[in-house]
Design a protein around this nucleic acid. Sequence first.
DNA 1: AATATTAACGACCGATCGTTCATATTGTTT
DNA 2: AAACAATATGAACGATCGGTCGTTAATATT
Lengths: 209, 209
Amino acid sequence: MIDGRLQRGERTRQAVLDAAVRLASVEGLDGLSLARLTATLNVSKSGLFTHWPDKQALQLAIVEHARRQWTEYIVEPAFRAPRGVRRLWALHERRIDFYRSGQLPGGCFFGAVDGELDDRPGPVRDAVADAIGSWMNLLARLSEIAVEVGDLRPGTDPAQLAFEIEAIGSVVVVHAHLLKRENSYRFARTAVLERLRSLSTDPGVLPKE
Amino acid sequence: MIDGRLQRGERTRQAVLDAAVRLASVEGLDGLSLARLTATLNVSKSGLFTHWPDKQALQLAIVEHARRQWTEYIVEPAFRAPRGVRRLWALHERRIDFYRSGQLPGGCFFGAVDGELDDRPGPVRDAVADAIGSWMNLLARLSEIAVEVGDLRPGTDPAQLAFEIEAIGSVVVVHAHLLKRENSYRFARTAVLERLRSLSTDPGVLPKE
DNA sequence: AATATTAACGACCGATCGTTCATATTGTTT
DNA sequence: AAACAATATGAACGATCGGTCGTTAATATT
């Protein structure tokens, strides 16, 4: 038995979070004002406080929502690739495709908010740092596994490789949106692909380009 | 003969811009409010309008100021290194040192503002895009020269290499400040150094680590 | 049918935003 | 000394910010 009232609330909540992540990918989390958020929705400003006690709680929910989207669109599909270097590559490829698909108008939620939270302590900052930290750990762990299964040469530093992949992946948004350089997506593919091939024991398992 | 009034104004202007770049490296350009900017200075909020007609004009001046600092602290010193791959490396090294030195509390002005201006048209956005675009062109040009003088292997794509160096350089701020990972600076050094060595005709001209 | 519960709203609050303006202060020119 | 020019200020403005409150609509429970 389903309570129609709770159902209605849940529907609204998801609609707000969807719009919020989209908006925040452009304006950031602080730049996002409640009035402008509700402007494009069938929700009043005071209606937001039915679901979240204050703006900070909403911001935390937004971060959580963006994180779920990231997992759903990028991490989970990549895990359909076989273990080792191919899974690592799939992760990067999915990410670039996600950016290029224009799913979020600003390109990337985390890219839009990381700059404004750098040195501003608080729960929101911690939540974003935790999300990005987990992503980094995932990259490092998959790199480690790729070494263990023999795809990548022994001696390869997983943390170093994770750092490099993340660098290439994160800079592409700025270059594509701010500098309007469409070739950024290709550069980002090439950079990581060549790097992985150079570390691979058998480059043949990776695509040619 | 110097007009003491103009002198005074110029002194104030520089003090404001210095503080503004520092503050904006943490809060961004929009997050920066005039009241908070003047709070730490001996200037009233209305006093700002003596020097700039509105906030946007001030923001443009701030971008210009940050750009001058970037040139002064990073580009010019790097040009004391000999032409070729060593100059390219010096550029990256100076940049990482600038970040690590903590000259700006937020680490990097452009890193703090690029996310919030991604898709928001206007003169400020254009100014930031122009600054970063020039920097990219410099990286690409120095890469090109490094190929021409024979330091880097022929066939090296300067734009691709510039993209990779910029990626490594820009991500280090987020990792050091948001994730508080001190090893980011070392990762960023190693990544570019190894990349350049792998492309060099004579890796001996580059430092070992 | 009467009562609780949940979702959502409009009106309003104090604080802060960027901005204007009349005025004061300081330094230069005549 | 008088007139002028540049710098800087405090008080106030309308707009917008995040947030509160009393009320209504819809659904569920008794």
